[in-house]
Design a protein around this nucleic acid. Structure first.
Lengths: 217, 217
DNA sequence: CCACACACGTGAACC
DNA sequence: TGGTTCACGTGTGTG
C-alpha cells in the first residue's frame, strides 16, 4: 500500500474505481541500488502516470460515446467502438443514398408534430412579421409574407408551406436589407384540406407575428 | 539530477538477471524460483503478451477506420476516433432529420408501392431542363432554371440549393402548364466555397438535363 | 539532454 | 481454483 503518489492522479483513480478496486498499490520494488533508503525513481514515473491517466480517460470517453457497451473492459471498449463506427458509417451511407436517390418532399423536420411545430421555430425566423392569406379558390391561396430577412428564412418558409400540404405554383420574393417580402401562390395538394385560418396561424407563428392581422377572401 | 545512474549497464543487467535474457522470445515454461540462477517467470507472461497484442490490434483497426488521423499514436488514435464518432453521430442525426419529413407522397402511392418507390425516386424531376449559372460575384450567383413543372419541384429545388450551401436572396418563379421557370439569386453561405461548374453540374443532374446548355423537348 | 511514447514483465484482483 | 484484466514502474527508442 501507500505508494507515495507525488500527485493526485485523478482520472486514474476514477478508472480504478470503475474497473478495478483502488487497491493496485505496492511497488514490486526489486531495486538493488546500494542507497540505503533512497529508492531509485525513474524520471518517467510521473510522466508515465500522466500518460496512462490520459489514455484511460480517452478510453473512457470513447466508451461513453458508444451506446451498446457489452463489457466494461478495454478490449470490449475498443471492439464496441469499432463496431459502432462501422455501423455509423454504414448508416450514413444508407441515409445519403436514400436521400440522394429520392428527394421526395424532404423538409428539415418542421412539419410533423404540432407541438414541435409551435415550439421549434425559434431558429426559424423569430421576428415580427406580417402574414396575409387570400383565398383564390377552394384550394388555392395567395400568401403575402413580410418578415425579417434571415439566413435560410426563405428556404424554411418554402419547406413549411410544403409540409403543410401546399404546392407552390408561383412565387416572387425579394429580400433587401433586413426585410424580406414574398408572395406565394399556393395550391393545396390532392386530398389535403387545410382551413385558411389554420394556415395563417401556423405561418404567423412561424414567421414570428404574435397574433393575426388580416384574413381576406 | 541523478545523471550518473548506470542505466545501460546496471539496470539492464538487473533486468537481464530478473527475466532471463533478451526477453523477447521466451517460452512460457513455469520456472521455479528455487533454481539457483534461473529466475521466476510470471505465469501470465504469455497471456499478458497476447492481451497486449490483441489490444494493440484493436487499436490499430480502430485507427484504420478513422479517415483523418493526425498522428500515429495511441492517444491521437483514441482522440480521433472520439471526434470521428461524434461527427458521424451528428451526421446521422442531420441526415435523419433531413430525410424524416414527408410521408405525403409515399403514403399516397403505397398501393403499388415498392416498385414505384424504388423506380421513381432516382430522378427527382426527371425531365429535360435547362440550367444557367452566372457568376455575379465571388460568392454570388444567378441561376436560371427551366424544367418540367412537377409537384414539389420548386420546393425541392430550393432545398437542393439550400443544402448545397447557398442562400436564396431573391427568387422569381413562374409555373405554367407543364413548364416551370425560376430565377434564383443566390449567395454562398459563410465559409462555403462551391465552384460554379460544380454548382451547375449538380443542379443539372438534379433538374434532369444531361448536358449543359441545351434544352430538349 | 529531455520530453514523449511505447512495450515489457510483474503482482494483484476479479470471476 | 486458473484464466483474464488491470495498473504499475521501468528500459528504451525517437526527435
Amino acid at each position: 500500500m501507500a505508494t507515495d503518489y507525488p500527485e493526485s492522479s485523478n482520472a486514474m483513480d476514477f478508472v480504478n474505481t470503475v474497473l478495478d478496486i483502488g487497491g493496485d498499490e505496492d511497488y514490486p520494488e526489486p531495486m538493488l541500488m546500494d542507497m540505503p533508503e533512497m529508492r531509485y525513481k525513474s524520471k518517467n514515473l510521473e510522466a508515465e502516470r500522466r500518460r496512462r491517466s490520459k489514455l484511460n480517460s480517452k478510453l473512457f470517453s470513447l466508451r461513453s460515446l458508444v451506446p451498446n457497451i457489452t463489457k466494461m473492459s478495454k478490449e470490449s471498449t475498443l471492439t464496441d467502438a469499432i463496431d459502432y463506427i462501422k455501423q455509423l458509417q454504414k448508416e450514413v451511407l444508407e441515409l445519403q443514398t436514400e436521400l440522394l436517390s429520392m428527394p421526395d418532399e424532404e423538409v428539415e423536420k418542421q412539419g410533423s408534430a404540432s407541438s414541435i411545430n409551435t415550439m421549434t421555430p425559434p431558429d426559424a425566423i423569430h421576428c415580427q412579421g406580417k402574414v396575409e392569406v387570400s383565398s383564390m379558390d377552394h384550394n388555392k391561396f395567395l400568401l403575402k409574407i413580410t418578415c425579417e430577412n434571415k439566413r435560410g428564412g426563405f428556404s424554411k418558409l418554402v419547406e413549411v408551406i410544403n409540409t403543410m400540404g401546399f404546392e407552390v405554383t408561383n412565387v416572387s420574393s425579394v429580400a433587401f436589407s433586413y426585410v424580406s417580402q414574398s408572395v406565394f401562390f399556393i395550391e393545396a395538394k390532392d386530398g389535403v384540406l387545410v382551413p385558411m385560418h389554420e394556415l395563417k396561424e401556423f405561418l404567423s407563428a412561424f414567421v414570428g407575428v404574435s397574433e393575426d392581422t388580416t384574413i381576406r377572401n
